[in-house]
């Protein structure tokens, strides 16, 4: 599906987002000891949830803005 992450962020679908990023999250867990990994996973989910509305508000340039802005 095209622009899937954007789609999930717009729908505020945390579950789906976490599912998509699951491999990346699992990989980041090796930073910490075995006993704390579950807590870390929770913490990461929380962080993403906190950022969701901010992520929705991010404004990106459109095609001509992008192309004109970068031409000098």
């Amino acid at each position: 599906m095209e622009n899937q992450i954007l789609y999930e962020v717009e729908n505020q679908d945390l579950e789906r987002l976490l599912e998509i990023f699951r491999p990346a999250i699992k990989k980041s867990l090796i930073n910490t000891r075995m006993q704390e990994r579950e807590d870390l996973e929770q913490e990461i989910s929380m962080k993403i949830l906190e950022k969701l509305s901010y992520l929705q508000e991010i404004r990106t340039p459109d095609f001509f803005e992008f192309i004109e802005h970068h031409v000098d």
Partner: peptide, 15 residues
């Protein structure tokens, strides 16, 4: 990119 960075840095921060 933003979410990947969030994951990466919150893991480091947590530890």
């Amino acid at each position: 990119s933003y979410i990947s960075k969030t994951i990466h840095f919150s893991a480091i921060e947590f530890d």
